[in-house]
């Protein structure tokens, strides 16, 4: 299959990087190799060069053993397919060993940054040691987020951050590299775009199953092209297609598809 669309892009020296993707475990706790292989196949077919992955989100009051095992599966995927996978270190920031896990995975094993889910909001005090560590090391935090408007999502356990929580966290920690996950993750994305201009240090990733026409353009209009990061979060054709359909110059599209995230990675100090 020819990645015909890449021929239109000035990507000779750049990569298409999916900054929000997942591996998953089997019921016995081992890494699903089939899922990894299907992900790589999707990358080959759709022209994605590299996936930054965490294990599928685990909700609830997670203990160290659970997120440590999840990150172990990520490391296994990286070691097995080093040309395709890089890691996010997923932790429950309320666990006393969360920082130990970040140290092991990021400093010692080369994970790119920290992935947070819905154990706590991004602007809660429990996050402060973690955010300060990430600032010190110049690494990003990618966090599950959205402004859910339906009862089913609202009734789910956990505390999902929305853009207003990112704004609050960014005002307290303007040096932090905060990435609000999946603008197309199902919540009211227009609501997020009304909030985030107040937080110029916050990035958005484009992932999610919502592929609303005009959404990516509206993100660029609200935040500027440099704050938008290509991602799929498992919506593969939709993730690529909605960025292809955005009204961007090819130079801008290349930044969204990988250049902006590479610039974040280049800020690493550890």
């Amino acid at each position: 299959m020819l990645w015909f669309w890449r021929g239109n892009l000035n990507l000779e020296n750049a990569m298409v990087i999916d900054c929000h993707m997942h591996v998953r475990g089997r019921e016995d706790g081992s890494l699903s190799e089939e899922w990894c292989e299907n992900t790589i196949e999707a990358g080959e077919l759709l022209g994605i060069d590299l996936f930054y992955v965490s294990d599928l989100e685990l909700t609830g009051d997670l203990r160290y053993e659970s997120f440590h095992a999840a990150n172990g599966r990520v490391l296994e995927a990286i070691n097995r397919w080093p040309d395709w996978f890089r890691g996010w270190c997923f932790v429950n920031p309320g666990d006393p060993r969360a920082l130990d896990e970040v140290t092991q995975r990021v400093r010692d094993e080369g994970f790119a940054g920290v992935k947070l889910y819905n154990q706590y909001l991004i602007d809660e005090p429990v996050q402060e040691p973690l955010i300060e560590r990430c600032i010190e090391w110049g690494i990003p935090i990618l966090m599950h987020a959205g402004r859910a408007c339906d009862e089913e999502t609202l009734q789910r356990p956990g505390r999902m951050s929305d853009a207003s929580h990112f704004v609050a966290a960014a005002k307290r920690y303007p040096e932090a590299i905060l990435i609000e996950a999946h603008i197309g993750g199902g919540g009211d994305w227009e609501w997020a775009l009304k909030c985030l201009p107040d937080a110029p240090s916050v990035y958005l990733d484009t992932a999610g199953s919502v592929i609303d026409e005009w959404m990516v353009d509206r993100c660029v209009e609200a935040l500027g092209v440099d704050r938008l990061l290509f991602a799929t979060d498992m919506t593969m054709e939709g993730g690529v297609g909605k960025v292809l359909d955005a009204n961007l110059t090819e130079e801008e599209r290349g930044r969204v598809l990988g250049g902006n995230f590479q610039a974040i990675l280049d800020r690493r100090k550890v």
Binding site: L45, D212, E213, G241, K242, D245
Partner: peptide
């Protein structure tokens, strides 16, 4: 495609791949 509610390219990519 679902246009103009949805971006059209994803539907084409589904057929392509």
């Amino acid at each position: 495609t679902g246009f103009p509610f949805k971006a059209p390219s994803p539907a084409f990519l589904k057929v392509q791949v």
